Computed example of a mutant assay.
Amino acid sequence: MKPLLVTIDGREVQLSNLDKMMFPDFSKGEMIDYYTRIAPVLLPHLRDRAVTRIRYPDGVDGAHFFEKNRPGGTPSWVRLETLPVPGSTRSRETIDFVVVDELPTLVWLANLAAIELHTPQWRIGADPDLLVVDLDPGAPAGLRECCAVAVLIRERLAADGITAFPKTSGRKGMQLCCPISGTQDAEVVSGYAKRVAEDLATMVPGSITAKMAKQLRPGRVFIDWSQNSAAKTTVTPYSLRAGPVPAVSTPLTWDETAAIAVGEAEARQFGPAEVLARVAASGDLLSHLISSGPPVP
């Protein structure tokens, strides 16, 4: 298929290899279509955040790589922000990050086979405005056990005035996302998340661990508080995830989360068509993340 030059919101974007399969039975053209249609609810979660991409030039069955720096051939209209990267594996002091503020940039990245989009808990030039609790199940625990732990964490955070919103990871676990004030540095936020995780691990030691050691995880849900480090990123809501089939990091309601926890609803990830239908019916269940919340204790 010949490259196709399209104009999106006044920007020229070249699309290529639209029939290339990114997943079995899911082409690059279908991936671009998904990202275009989900953009109204996805873009607010990407806006003003440096995006890390995971690119799969030959689809999920081929090699992949993480990309933070601007790729070669970046159009002049793409927003770039030069930011420090302490501890870079390539000894760089700064990186020119791509910022996805508009649909043409999102489509351009999708055309580069950037299946996954990951963002930090802070907006450029500011302290964290999100607290993220990542729930990672150790087999045989799975998403159902994560949902049960999520309900406990919700209650624990609510006692401190923090409101949590759940989403699937698009893989095996889930995350809780909490709007916070953006007035405290990442070290303070991460310290608070660690205390919450340790409190719950003490309360339910047979089901929860707050320690990263792999040997402690089988049959437990690891509450990964370290996601709040300034250097960490989390998969962005509505991003696709690479795997055997296309799955999406999908916002859930708390009723759904509780139903999964007790076995009244299926514990599973959601595909792109399902997510588009959910958004058409209910809008963005994570819209509250766009506004600031309270400081952490």
Rank of each mutant, 00 (worst) to 15 (best):
G206C: 05
L176P: 03
R195Q: 13
Q184K: 04
A186Q: 04
C178N: 12
A197R: 00
V189Q: 00
L176W: 06
I180Y: 08
A197E: 01
Q175T: 15
A197L: 01
G170Y: 07
G191Y: 00
Q175W: 12
G191T: 02
V188Q: 07
S169L: 01
E187D: 14
D185I: 06
C178Y: 12
M174R: 12
S169V: 00
M203G: 11
V188L: 08
S207Q: 15
I180Q: 11
A201E: 12
C177A: 12
G182K: 07
L176F: 07
G191F: 00
I180T: 09
S190E: 12
E187G: 12
L200F: 05
C178K: 09
G173C: 04
A186S: 15
Q184Y: 03
I180F: 09
Y192C: 02
A186C: 07
K194L: 08
I208N: 09
T183R: 11
G182C: 03
A186V: 10
V189H: 00
R171A: 14
C177G: 10
Q175P: 05
S190C: 13
L200Y: 04
I180G: 09
S169N: 01
S190W: 02
A186H: 09
E198K: 06
S207L: 13
V188G: 01
V196L: 10
T183Y: 07
G173I: 02
R195K: 11
L176D: 03
C177T: 13
S169D: 01
A193S: 05
A201H: 04
S169E: 01
G182I: 06
Q175I: 13
L176Y: 06
D185Q: 03
R171N: 15
V188E: 06
V196Y: 03
Q184N: 03
P205M: 06
M203D: 14
G173Y: 03
K194G: 01
I208M: 09
G191E: 03
C178Q: 10
C178P: 09
M203F: 14
C178A: 10
I180S: 10
